[in-house]
Design a protein around this nucleic acid. Sequence first.
DNA 1: TACGATACGGAGGCCCCCTCCGCTTTTGCA
DNA 2: TGCAAAAGCGGAGGGGGCCTCCGTATCGTA
Lengths: 192, 192
Amino acid sequence: MAPTPLPSTRPTRADAARNYDLLVTAAREAFAEHGTDTSLEEIARRAGVGIGTLYRRFPNRTALLEAVYVDEIQSVCDRAYGFAEKLEPFEALAAWLRSFVGYGVSKKSLAGELTAALGKDSPFFQSCKVNVQEAGELLLRKAKAAGTVRQDLELMDIMRLVGGITMARDMEPEEANRLLDIVLCGLRPASS
Amino acid sequence: MAPTPLPSTRPTRADAARNYDLLVTAAREAFAEHGTDTSLEEIARRAGVGIGTLYRRFPNRTALLEAVYVDEIQSVCDRAYGFAEKLEPFEALAAWLRSFVGYGVSKKSLAGELTAALGKDSPFFQSCKVNVQEAGELLLRKAKAAGTVRQDLELMDIMRLVGGITMARDMEPEEANRLLDIVLCGLRPASS
DNA sequence: TACGATACGGAGGCCCCCTCCGCTTTTGCA
DNA sequence: TGCAAAAGCGGAGGGGGCCTCCGTATCGTA
């Protein structure tokens, strides 16, 4: 039996690719403006496509949320590498964490709905976590090497604490900074 | 004009009071078992009443969530006063915070849905906050007086940090404790 | 017991998620 | 260029959830 010669290589059709982008963009905007509970009908309308088209790209609401979420994660990682290059170890770590809390609300609800749908241990989150971890570990490792943080720190500890600050309701920037200072203080090596 | 003599004092009917309790109980159980997205139809069924009855007591889904939530808050406050009586100042504070993180998942989603519905600054949350604050301030004040925590601490700072730990996904008890230790470490007076 | 006030229950309206399928557009090939 | 098949499109409609409305049943009082 001759194997069917590359029947799957037919490229994605141009209109399909275009609509995919339209949908993701529309979703990102809609979520930012009206929160993640925007209806999919509304998003399809914004993108100028039919609801059926949306559902072929994204088999369910969660899939669309995922697509928007991974972009956010990517930018978080990018910033980590940026800071690692430009700043002193502890400062790089601090700046990265600060950029977290200054970030905002949009992905709090995004992540919330995703965890509710997928479960916190889903492969999707595993893979997001791996990426963020890789970026964060770099910063933490440098700070440990410089001796400016406790040696027994685990990245996930820090992430959780800072994530907690982000989660907090009605946060004023100055309050967030004070909280972060407390955490950063806790990260420092114990004064003997 | 003689004021109408107490026309509003007619007591709640017996069946109404009974159904109210049935509904709150059914809701608490259902939320604990299946999460806060249990449908109201399901809760009414559990309680053995019609959906119309549920909606007369609780004009919307949020109202029912509120009723369950206030009970949780009450028990949090009660514990604070219990610890304040039995333990040393810092230990009482620590124990209270530890009881937070050891608590669990149920009211995380409860609070999440409520904030989404009411907004974080709603009168409802204001009043919950006041109660918790009052209980927590007692513990914090004692610890400050004993000189075992930083003098510049604000209760809300602590609450947010610890609340953040509670919010974190997939938390093992031992991890939670380590996080809490970091926070507690940060609360201590700066070693001069 | 009899009657008004109160409460009950569920049918049905509206909106949302998602599926299904007939129609249109694009693409690869001759 | 012209054509057939593959790929994609769109929206009607099923199912379920929240909530309203109103005829019926029950309670409490005279």
